[in-house]
């Protein structure tokens, strides 16, 4: 009976629900198990971060942000994101344009290479730049030493490792969207006399703007939150090459748990905003008439 009632109330259920779903007790059991699993795995950590940050009062939590090391960590993290997001965007747009608007051999190999940074451990992402740029052991070490250029244990190294990690984010979002839109609209614009850049900025960009935005916020979240790759190349010098995630680690192992979790709650807030924006974008993309 219950299932009939819900159906009449206009819930968007599938037709002939009774034959293609599990019995009610089974459904409830599955939903219950799934929710308990997610409660423990996803929700409890979030609550724990807020609790640990605020357990000795909001004053102590806010005191974290007076700490000059914390401030310089926040500034460094913002700097790294400000470098990585635009560069990854330009690469993502170029790669998506090349892959979706032209036919050439080795296209699937190229997309696999773009995916590589996903498959490589962040620690290795840091190691590869040490092997090249380390002053003492790197392939370019002697040259950099001679010209007094510091890459490893400095901002350029951190930026390079983060660029490697975030490389696929924008391209991965744009390629499927531009693929499904095909080339007809660009053909039309070009036939009507628009130039290449004009076609790109007036036709292609507006068509992919939500996907691009989606890729950018994911890229930004990862650039600000990357730990493993940056830990390897930064040297973690307090106040100089310590990013927010690295400074959280330092504080945590110094048993300064309130400060660690206070700084962590900023990054958690960023993660939640990212998720929110992602869902808004997904909603916009599905609503858009195609």
């Amino acid at each position: 009976m219950a299932s009939i009632v819900t159906r009449i109330r206009g819930e968007p259920l599938r037709k002939s629900q009774s034959t293609t779903t599990e019995p009610a007790w089974c459904r409830r059991l599955m939903i219950g198990t799934g929710l308990v699993f997610l409660l423990f795995l996803l929700l409890m950590p979030l609550v724990a971060i807020a609790y640990e940050a605020l357990r000795h009062g909001i004053g102590l939590c806010l005191a974290t942000f007076v700490d000059p090391h914390a401030r310089s960590a926040i500034l460094l993290t913002l700097t790294v994101a400000a470098i990585c997001v635009p560069v990854t965007m330009v690469f993502g747009l170029a790669a998506a344009w090349a892959i979706t608007k032209f036919s050439f051999r080795g296209k699937s190999l190229l997309t696999t290479v773009i995916d590589l940074p996903f498959a490589v451990s962040p620690v290795i992402a840091g190691l590869i730049f040490i092997l090249i740029f380390s002053g003492t052991h790197g392939y370019l070490g002697p040259y950099l030493e001679a010209h007094d250029i510091r890459v490893i244990f400095a901002l350029p190294g951190i930026a390079l490792a983060t660029l490697f990690i975030t490389l696929p984010f924008v391209a991965r979002e744009l390629i499927p969207i531009m693929q499904s839109q095909g080339r007809e609209e660009e053909f039309a614009a070009l036939t009507l006399g628009a130039g290449g850049w004009r076609t790109f900025s007036r036709v292609t960009l507006p068509n992919v703007k939500w996907g691009l935005f989606y890729g950018l916020i994911l890229c930004n979240a990862r650039a600000m939150g990357e730990f493993g790759a940056v830990a390897v190349v930064s040297g973690n010098i307090k106040g100089k090459t310590s990013t927010m995630p690295l400074y959280i680690e330092t504080l945590y192992f110094e048993y300064n748990s309130v400060a660690a979790f206070s700084l962590a709650s900023i990054l958690t807030g960023l993660a939640l905003v990212t998720l929110l924006l992602k869902n808004v974008v997904e909603w916009r993309m599905t609503r858009r008439p195609s």
Partner: peptide, 17 residues
Amino acid sequence: GMVDLPFALPTAVAGIA
């Protein structure tokens, strides 16, 4: 929407939490 949290939450934050 929350299922993507582990993608979005920095790993160090997840670790200490």
